[in-house]
């Protein structure tokens, strides 16, 4: 289990980014974090992955305090994080990146299996550079695929729906549903999407750096259901 205990986060440039957040992320479960823009969702993910260090509070990974552990060591301990904004690299191919993620050489069939989950054809993409010549949606899907390729126990996805077309999104939803069945892996997805909230086990709402609601999907969703526009992917909840 991954536990956040009374986490406070201040940055030099911004105080009270998170203000006493406690949350348990359990294997075999899909936890969805939602809430308004600027509420602190990405900051929380960065904190778990080690990009930020908490001002106070603790992060426990299967009982071990990892609050001050490096990004690399957390990754090696089984934390994987798909960024909200994918990072571009000149000269690093999709295959290179996937191999770094999986930690092994990958044959076309293995690449295919993973890229297919995000609606990409491996043959077409594996030798392309992960640079700005890829479209926004392509970059985003490759970013998600690098996390699907990780042999990690805790998988974090930051707004995986953003910029992704309807067809790839459906395939992604089924990938998440499959991952959920794995009793040894825990999923944490940051999302504004009804279709993702609908497959959640637990839902947390973060607003102004604090969790304002937490519970099972059935407990939390009814409270969120006030309006929101229709989109092909389902309603935007926040």
């Amino acid at each position: 289990m991954l536990s956040l205990r009374d986490i406070k986060l201040d940055l030099e440039t911004k105080e009270n980014l998170l203000n006493g957040v406690s949350l348990d992320i359990m294997p075999g479960k899909l936890t969805v974090i939602t809430g308004p823009n600027g509420g602190g969702k990405t900051s929380l993910a960065k904190l778990i992955a080690g990009l930020y260090v908490p001002t106070s509070g603790q992060i426990l990974l299967d009982g071990e305090d990892i609050s001050h552990m490096s990004v690399t060591d957390r990754a090696k301990r089984g934390i994987a994080y798909a960024f909200q904004q994918p990072v571009a690299f000149k000269g690093i191919t999709v295959r290179n990146l996937m191999e770094m993620a999986s930690g092994t050489e990958m044959h076309e069939s293995a690449l295919c299996r993973i890229l297919d989950r995000v609606g990409l054809c491996a043959r077409e993409y594996m030798d392309r550079d992960m640079d700005s010549r890829l479209s926004g949606g392509e970059m985003k899907r490759i970013e998600i695929a690098t996390v699907l390729a990780r042999p990690a126990k805790y998988l974090l996805f930051d707004e995986p729906e953003a910029g992704i077309d309807l067809w790839s999104f459906s395939s992604l939803i089924s990938a998440f549903e499959d991952l959920k069945k794995d009793e040894d892996r825990a999923l944490l997805i940051i999302s504004h999407q009804e279709r993702i909230l609908n497959i959640a086990d637990n839902v947390a709402v973060i607003r102004e750096g604090v969790i304002t609601q937490y519970g099972t999907k059935d407990e939390v969703l009814p409270n969120l259901m006030q309006g929101g526009g229709c989109s092909p992917k389902g309603k935007e909840m926040y």
């Binding site: 990009l51 090696k76 770094m100 690098t146 990780r150």
Partner: peptide, 12 residues
Amino acid sequence: EQIIKLMTLGLT
């Protein structure tokens, strides 16, 4: 962010 991204994949 490039270095950080690769570190999240387990590289030093």
